[in-house]
Design a protein around this nucleic acid. Structure first.
Length: 846
RNA sequence: GCGAGAGUGGCGGAACUGGCAGACGCGCUGGACUUAGGAUCCAGAGGGGCAACCCGUGGGGGUUCAACUCCCCCCUCUCGCACCA
């Protein structure tokens, strides 16, 4: 009876789309986006009088179009930003573009379009797409890292780092395509071959710039314990990446060569008496001097060429045979005084430790495998446990054996004593080693920030003068994908004057790793147009650190570690007060579809534009947040999107169908509530409590949204049930309270429809200037609870007890329960466990 | 390979510090309203069984009155890799 008439009313009042019966989201979303922009609602300035909240999502690479991963991360960020607005914070929520990088150069090679043109067109497209999502960005703070006004400051910091020895030059290995005559990124190497010409990739040594992140290894590690807002799994990955290990460093003399000593690092100095051979990395610089003659030199070169074809992952794999080459020279184990053979082997890397190891096959599995393959002796220096089969290395604890003055000691004691001995003999010392390597930042690419140094015949390497910055990337350049750095082909760029002597000098033609730009963009947002420095000190002092950083788990190590490092460098340069850039981190999972990452080749891509056109941004955002908790992968499902859309429509319809009653109702129910009214009010306030908790506690927006859905379900039930038997003012006031709570709680998720509904409910001010609702403890209070009764762990009955019922009382009720008694017949009660307010478990025997 | 995560109905996912497994949504089934329904509303539903009940959180052990949750072993999948001397 009521439904048809209600339906008629709905159609007449609400301008539903005729065909689809959907609320008019295109118009609503456009209108509110314009209103927020016109009012500059999310434009912020520093306001010391209010608590600040800096909410940041990892900025995108301007690939051309946003994808669902972007929708997800920005929906998460915007929810938090808007929530914090409603909580009274002064929220900084900026957006920009990680605009340098390889794809722009590839586009230039493939389509002949200039990287700058390509990049800025993409930015324009993506900005339009993002605006359609209705994110609360302060667009006045937009930055693009390819802007000289941006990278100028990065060049300045480079020079400061150079002055402090934090930037230095050395040789390093790169992938080289002999056919294209160019350096390849790892990404451009496919199964050992060049992705363009399919030639076999080789390794080349070239000079490049490094940042000395290893100087900060200990501090970066220490602060992992002081970042409680970070996910533990990311901190664990960072700790492992930094890879601190304690041990000893000492020298092995080369037999007959008093001029040569091989320095080795070991975490197990206690096993030194088990050293039966030693290994150098094939790249080790001493190898050339150790080589005995022409013939051995040739063998070494051949071996090096073989190893050069292996990736580091292959070289370190423990499940494949290790390659080795025995050298003619021998070394001395200083502990035993005995001679041991020397090898080159692929499993020893130049980049870790000293690039040489003492091999202890008895207590190291890789050494064991290599020793077995090369018929080398194996000596046990730790007593094996009872029944140990001598078929693998023993890496466990135990008493030292076969180790002369270390015999009988525990492993830890022996480590200390071995080091003491080394120190006493003047052979070595205790040493802390890190797995972390310095950060190579030189790229032989065009589309990046130029490295601001020159090379002068007379003065050598000279940094550019500060007043000459930025060193601007020249526009006219040929990008072919062949040959060296494209900048080397631009005479007007290369040929410059020496900042020191004024003579002729050549500029460095490499550009910086794009990770450098992304290591400080969050600082630039604090004062994006400031032109007297990287950032305005007062602005950075106000906004930093970022309170909540949000981005993909794939950045768990590299980007996040580099940004932490860069921040510490700036602090040590006296520019910044904070020690860490990101107070809290939310690592969100990927968006997948049909069990696989979205990709064009798999044909499972969902286009956000298309989605927004069909369902609206509010629905797209709602679904992204509802379908999975943020840290997990999200399996995209088109049907699920329809469900999200259906939910918003349901809310829309309910509000409009009851508008007259809602707008005339009292704000709070007058007088005492009926029992049904109290029950409903408990649902309302329970929802407020749960949503707030889920947002604050663990970012589980999916359960927050499901709680609102439950409230809406309860709202419908209440609306129907309260028609009879409830006083009209009570009903109306409760309906209003519930609807307003729904709209407020849903605001950060789906901001356009909720603004519209909020206005329809008679409010003049923006929803996002409202105060977030708080749960009324009085409304939450209940006087009875349901208690589950188990017999031997199985649910056999349930009973209702007073909240404050005593344990003995509940126990008696359970034992007397009619449903429970038959299960106790003929059994002896061994024990009764009472969990207050939850359950009773009656344990029987026999 | 190493490092880090994840495995729960037909599907996405719930389940607080060990206490009723499957909230919420999708899909499905039945019904109502409709010229119509791919709109909307109501109801049902983990699997087995007429039922009482039994079985169920990747697999196998264990701890406990009680295990998705804690411990040990194994399997599968995902992410990162410059990487353990």
């Amino acid at each position: 009876m009521r439904l048809p008439s209600k339906r008629a009313k709905i159609s007449a009042n609400m301008a539903f789309d005729d065909r689809q019966d959907r609320y008019p989201f295109p118009e609503i979303e456009a209108r509110w986006q314009k209103a927020w922009a016109d009012r500059q609602q999310f434009t912020v300035t520093e306001d010391p009088g209010r608590p600040k909240y800096y909410c940041l999502e990892m900025f995108p690479y301007p690939s051309g179009r946003i994808h669902m991963g972007h929708v997800r991360v920005y929906a998460i960020g915007d929810l938090l930003a808007r929530y914090k607005w409603m909580r009274g914070f002064n929220v900084l929520h900026p957006m920009g573009w990680d605009a340098f990088g390889l794809p722009a150069e590839n586009a230039a090679i493939d389509n002949g379009v200039h990287p700058a043109v390509w990049t800025y067109e993409n930015i324009d497209n993506m900005r339009t797409q993002l605006r359609r999502m209705g994110i609360s960005y302060d667009w006045d703070r937009e930055v693009a890292t390819c802007d000289p006004a941006y990278y100028k400051w990065e060049q300045l910091i480079f020079i400061r780092m150079l002055e402090r020895g934090l930037a230095y030059r050395r040789r390093s290995r790169v992938n080289w395509c002999p056919s294209c005559q160019t350096v390849l990124a790892n990404e451009q190497v496919e199964a050992g071959r060049c992705w363009r010409c399919d030639s076999e990739v080789t390794i080349r040594e070239i000079d490049g710039w490094f940042f000395k992140i290893t100087d900060y290894a200990q501090e970066l590690l220490d602060w992992c314990d002081r970042l409680p807002g970070w996910p533990e799994r990311v901190l664990t990955m960072q700790r492992n990446w930094i890879g601190r290990s304690e041990g000893a460093e000492f020298a092995l003399p080369v037999v007959g060569r008093p001029d040569l000593r091989i320095s080795i690092f070991t975490t197990r100095p206690d096993t030194s008496f088990g050293m039966t051979y030693a290994v150098l990395a094939p790249e080790h610089p001493l190898v050339d001097r150790i080589a005995a003659g022409e013939e051995e030199r040739r063998r070494i070169d051949a071996f090096r060429a073989e190893v050069a074809r292996e990736t580091e992952i292959e070289r370190l794999a423990t499940d494949r045979p290790k390659r080795g080459l025995r050298l003619e020279a021998r070394a001395v184990n200083p502990f035993t005084g005995g001679e041991i053979p020397l090898f080159l082997a692929d499993y020893v890397l130049m980049g870790y430790g000293t690039g040489a190891i003492m091999a202890v096959p008895g207590e190291d599995q890789r050494d064991w495998d290599f020793a077995k393959a090369n018929r080398l002796p194996i000596i046990a220096t730790v007593k094996r446990p009872e029944g140990w089969r001598e078929d693998q290395a023993y890496t466990g604890d135990g008493v030292k054996i076969n180790s002369r003055f270390l015999d009988g000691l525990s492993l830890e004691e022996a480590k200390r004593k071995a080091i003491d001995w080394l120190v006493g003999e003047g052979l070595g010392q205790a040493k802390v080693n890190f797995r972390l390597r310095d950060w190579g930042i030189s790229r032989q690419r065009y589309w990046g920030a130029p490295i601001p140094v020159l090379y002068c015949e007379r003065d050598g390497m000279v940094p550019e003068r500060e007043e000459n910055l930025p060193v601007v990337l020249p526009r006219d350049v040929q990008i072919s994908g062949k040959g060296g750095s494209p900048l080397a082909e631009v005479p007007s760029f290369v040929n410059a004057t020496c900042p020191r002597c004024g003579g002729a000098a050549r500029r460095d033609t490499d550009t910086m790793d794009t990770f450098v730009e992304s290591s400080w963009y969050f600082l630039r947002y604090c004062s994006p147009t400031y032109d007297r420095g990287m950032f305005e000190p007062a602005a950075a002092a106000y906004w930093m650190p970022v309170d909540q950083y949000i981005g993909g788990i794939e950045h768990a190590v590299l980007h996040l570690l580099y940004a932490r490092f860069y921040t510490k460098v700036l602090r040590d340069l006296g520019m910044l007060k904070v020690d860490e850039p990101f107070r809290a981190l939310l690592s969100q999972g990927m968006v997948i579809k049909d069990g696989a990452k979205m990709s064009k080749s798999k044909g499972n891509v969902v286009d956000p534009d298309d989605l927004i056109r069909r369902f609206g941004a509010d629905t797209a955002r709602l679904f992204s947040l509802f379908a999975a908790p943020p840290e997990k992968d999200l399996d995209w499902n088109d049907r699920g999107v329809e469900g999200a859309s259906r939910f918003l429509n349901r809310v829309w319809r309910f509000v409009h169908a009851n508008l007259p009653e809602l707008t005339t109702a009292a704000r709070t129910p007058a007088g005492p509530l009926s029992e049904a009214g109290r029950a409903f009010r408990r649902v309302i306030h329970g929802t407020i409590q749960k949503v707030t908790h889920d947002i604050e506690h663990d970012f589980h927006f999916n359960t927050a949204i499901s709680a609102v859905m439950e409230l809406v379900n309860a709202l419908h039930d209440f609306e129907r049930a309260s028609l009879d038997g409830m006083a009209r003012p009570e009903r109306s006031a409760l309906l209003r309270e519930a609807v307003e709570a729904t709209v407020l709680l849903l605001g950060p998720v789906s901001p356009h429809i909720t603004e519209e509904l909020w206005a329809a409910l008679g409010h003049r001010e923006s929803l996002f200037k409202q105060v977030w609702p708080t749960a009324d403890p009085g409304a939450l209070a209940r006087d009875e609870v349901e208690i589950v009764v188990q017999v031997d762990g199985r649910v056999r009955g349930r009973l209702t007890a007073a909240v404050d019922a005593r344990e003995a009382e509940v126990r008696e009720m359970a034992l007397a329960d009619g449903k429970v008694r038959p299960w106790l017949d003929g059994r002896r009660i061994a024990k009764v466990v009472v969990v207050p307010g939850r359950l009773v478990n009656i344990v029987t025997r026999g």
